[in-house]
Amino acid sequence: MEYVIILIGAVFVNNIVLSQFLGICPFLGVSNKVSTSWGMSGAVLFVMTIATTVTYLLHQYVLVPMGLDYLRTITFILVIAALVQMVEIILKKVSPPLYQALGVFLPLITTNCAVLGVAILALGMEDASLLKAVFFAFSSSIGFALALIVFASIREYLELADIPKGMKGVPINLLVAGLLSLAFLGFAGLV
């Protein structure tokens, strides 16, 4: 039951993109086609889950016992950057089709604040265990995927819409994101 609450909380109530504002860059940047947004979502799901596992263990068994808590930001960003490289190399060797699908998105993920943000948020959960932290990261990336894919689908329709001149491009996308966020606000209080 606890895990169901984490899942619903991370996907709908505290969606990382629409209510926590993490990962806005890829959200606005790679959402012009539905197919690319699937690729990006897959890459984020993959990296976010692995990164949180590693950073959680590192924090729990290395940084905290040694009293190096203040180095959290530096170590986490390095671990994430190294991890993304490693995932890229392993995928290329082990599963070329998956690499083909996710390849271009992997380097972009290093500077995706959602990955670092979720790794830090997972440490702050109440009575967190490794399993809970990893499940939280997994649920958050599902939330990211949901927001990104819905947004990309709407943007494909916008291509054909007749939009006032001043609103074209960035402003109309931000407005759509705002309305989506408003819709997700309706889930508040669900958990």
Partner: peptide
């Protein structure tokens, strides 16, 4: 949260 997107859209 939605206000952030909407306000930024109009400011832009």
């Amino acid at each position: 949260p939605p206000g952030a997107f909407i306000a930024l859209a109009y400011l832009a």
